[in-house]
Design a protein around this nucleic acid. Sequence first.
DNA 1: TGTACATCAGTGAACGCGCGTTCACTGATGTAC
DNA 2: TGTACATCAGTGAACGCGCGTTCACTGATGTAC
Lengths: 198, 198
Amino acid sequence: MVGKRQEKREALRRNLIGAAAARIEEGGLSAFRARDVAADVGCALGTIYTVFQDLDDLILQVNAETLQDLGRSLAPTSDVETPKTALTALAQGYARFAAKNFNRWNALFDHRMADGGPSPDWLLAHHSTLLRLLERHIAKLTPGLAGEALTLRARTWFAAVHGIVSISLQKRFLGLPDDRLMEELEVFVGQVVAGSGR
Amino acid sequence: MVGKRQEKREALRRNLIGAAAARIEEGGLSAFRARDVAADVGCALGTIYTVFQDLDDLILQVNAETLQDLGRSLAPTSDVETPKTALTALAQGYARFAAKNFNRWNALFDHRMADGGPSPDWLLAHHSTLLRLLERHIAKLTPGLAGEALTLRARTWFAAVHGIVSISLQKRFLGLPDDRLMEELEVFVGQVVAGSGR
DNA sequence: TGTACATCAGTGAACGCGCGTTCACTGATGTAC
DNA sequence: TGTACATCAGTGAACGCGCGTTCACTGATGTAC
């Protein structure tokens, strides 16, 4: 049976990604070690390198999964709502996901390619998918906007919300208090929506 | 002369911070090495540790300087302008500073305390000073807002602008194209200002 | 079904390098008389 | 002003550790006949 080997391989791969995700969530990217993942999965250190090119590769796989999880947790934003309701729900859903999966979510932004180059295309595609969730509602809000300009506006919108969530959650310096975050997001979205009607 | 020793000491300290800032600006925090700084200044490796507690300490000093530079470059925002003009100028000024001092600016947010703890108070104080630049104009915009609530709103405002600038400049994934950043900031500030009039 | 051989997933000790930090030392600067 | 001594800034070779990655090996799985 040829398929059995492949099945085992695939299971190993999933286990490694799962263990890596758990480790990243536990201690953040900076405390992430190949040896820990191997120990968690119960395989030899070298085994990781028979499945992934290097540690960076493994981290990218984890990030891809995180993006998919994020997408799933934002999905129930249907068309029937007003743009304001929908955009508020998306912003707050993003904040909730970030808070619940803090270190994995951070890894999305902390991780830099070893050569300093851009992320691989397949990862960028995940991002675009998520941005399209926003575009729908922003288009309703500002009917004149379409194509390139709409995509750009969605990016700006995401970036602003991300900034608010990000500064709030890494309490390092000027963090917003946690309990106020949801409130601030609602006010913020309300302001931008109110100011967009032209 | 006792003062002469202290003078030399102070000069060495400034040289080290200057060289460190240059190195950070050149290659980013992740490529920052004690040996490089020592070589640039022309002193021994160990000398760094006679002036600073450890490398972290030196990095914090560089960050403090960066914050001061940022403050200076934003300062010419006088009271006579409308809130919209002033807030647009501040947002675009922030973007300009970030673009010109990209790696030093990044270091402000990339750097984590070794023990995972918060930044020292004297560094937080620098942040607060900068936030006060915003408060002035936001207060004019929304007269009902004061005290704690005003500070919070200023933080949210800063975080949103920071997010837009940050996602744009680290081109990694969904970066806004550089030349559109200033434009997007203007539109964005316009929207929030328009939506704040209550 | 059984035997001999080939392939390849998985192993883990060892390599190699980078780099922050230390510490015994030295030479310059300051003090006492 | 000059000499002897004390202090302390500055030195840089060496330490120590962490950790990603490799590679010669082994044992399990699959194939041929």
